[in-house]
């Protein structure tokens, strides 16, 4: 059930200049609600000049410790205020929102989780859930340069990690679509990152006949399917990314 809830920041670690990993626990000590990989939260950022909540993916859920993790990139006023927050401060979240990735697949399926930039955020929790279900998820993570590769160790703890950087400072040089791991057989790609990257991955998926789910980051106001601001054109017409997404199978989208 969707809810509005106060959280306490357990810790907020800066990653380089532009990112942070924030760990949160419910302020009232209650158990975290059910959350699926690919779902997101809407964060109320109490800083001057920010009115609407900001959508942020669920990066990780630690049921045992009852902790929710967010990975945030500085994109403007709201996210930079989040990066500056300190342990012990409170944050109001609306959660859980959206549909999530599908985690069913045939036994032994080869599942590749492809992330670019801060788009890697939802893939950690997805990878963990897939692993719990008996799969061996592989990650293909791309970034402009080595400093933008986020929480590599967290991913390595879950599965095999392939890396690409545009400047060649780490892993294979170039875009993720150039990585040789995509030329081998696979069952499904899960992809989250900048739109041009997701479109390129969708194209490769079509060429290779691989099932593909992408997570969109359309601009949102309510996050609840009420305002119709976040729509994406699909084969069914305009649908709300905040309720019918953010995850879509590429066959539902009208991408070329």
């Amino acid at each position: 059930m969707k809810q509005v809830k106060d959280f306490i920041i357990i810790d907020n670690c800066k990653i380089g200049e532009a990112y942070c990993k924030m760990r949160l626990a419910p302020a009232d000590g209650s158990i975290l609600p059910e959350m699926l990989p690919g779902q997101f939260v809407e964060v109320a950022v109490e800083t001057p000049g920010v009115l609407l909540r900001r959508p942020i993916s669920i990066n990780d859920v630690d049921r045992q410790a009852n902790i929710l993790t967010l990975l945030v990139r500085n994109a403007g006023r709201g996210t930079s205020a989040l990066i500056d927050m300190k342990a012990g401060e409170r944050l109001n979240l609306l959660l859980p929102l959206g549909n999530g990735f599908s985690t069913e697949a045939p036994a032994g399926a080869r599942l590749i989780l492809i992330g670019g930039g801060v788009g890697v955020a939802p893939l950690l929790y997805l990878g963990k859930v897939l692993k719990e279900k008996g799969f061996e998820p592989e990650f293909l993570l791309g970034a402009r340069t080595v400093a933008d590769l986020l929480s590599l160790d967290d991913f390595k703890a879950v599965g095999k990690v392939h890396v690409c950087t545009e400047d060649g400072s780490e892993g294979v040089k170039g875009f993720v679509t150039a990585h040789p791991c995509l030329s081998e057989k696979a069952t499904r790609y899960y992809c989250c990152g900048p739109a041009p990257m997701m479109k390129a991955v969708a194209k490769v998926a079509r060429q290779n006949g691989v099932d593909c789910e992408v997570s969109l980051e359309n601009m949102m106001a309510c996050g609840l399917g009420a305002c119709l601001c976040c729509v994406e054109k699909t084969v069914k017409g305009n649908v709300c990314v905040c309720t019918e997404g953010p995850v879509f199978n590429i066959n539902e989208l009208t991408w070329e």
């Binding site: 609407l52 359309n218 601009m219 119709l228 729509v231 054109k233 305009n238």
Partner: peptide, 23 residues
């Protein structure tokens, strides 16, 4: 009505602009 094309909203100082277009 399908409404207007995306993008349909942007936050502005102490407010927001929308162009949903009666979907």
């Amino acid at each position: 009505r399908q409404g207007n094309d995306y993008p349909r909203m942007v936050e502005t100082p102490a407010g927001m602009l929308n162009a949903v277009g009666l979907q």
